[in-house]
Amino acid sequence: MSITLGNKWLMSIRVLTAVIIGYGLTVLYTVAISKTLMILGLTKVNATVSMQLLSFLIYSIVVMWVFSVASLRKLWLHITYSMIISLVLIYLINMGLQ
């Protein structure tokens, strides 16, 4: 089983990761995707609002993913990767849009 129910500390870390880091990830993803959509020709307001609307689905998926990855180390590694990728994407698009 992927989750050791016995270890309360590991479980708490996972819950906090899902709730707080998961929310942060969701925001990063929505910003990155909405900026991508803007490049593809969607207006700023439409890109923003539609990604806000989709954010709840993204957040749910992120939370489920946090609970499904077996090792915490692997989980944190993935989180770091995807944060860096979204941030770089946002940065590049911002440069391009200016």
Binding site: V27, T30, V31, T48, V49, Q52, S55, I90
Partner: peptide
């Protein structure tokens, strides 16, 4: 459930808007 969240999307997800605007 989903549409309930959509009512206050601007309260729940303000950072997305703040970043884009």
């Amino acid at each position: 459930t989903y549409s309930g969240l959509a009512f206050f999307v601007f309260t729940y997800m303000p950072l997305t808007a703040l970043a884009n605007y």
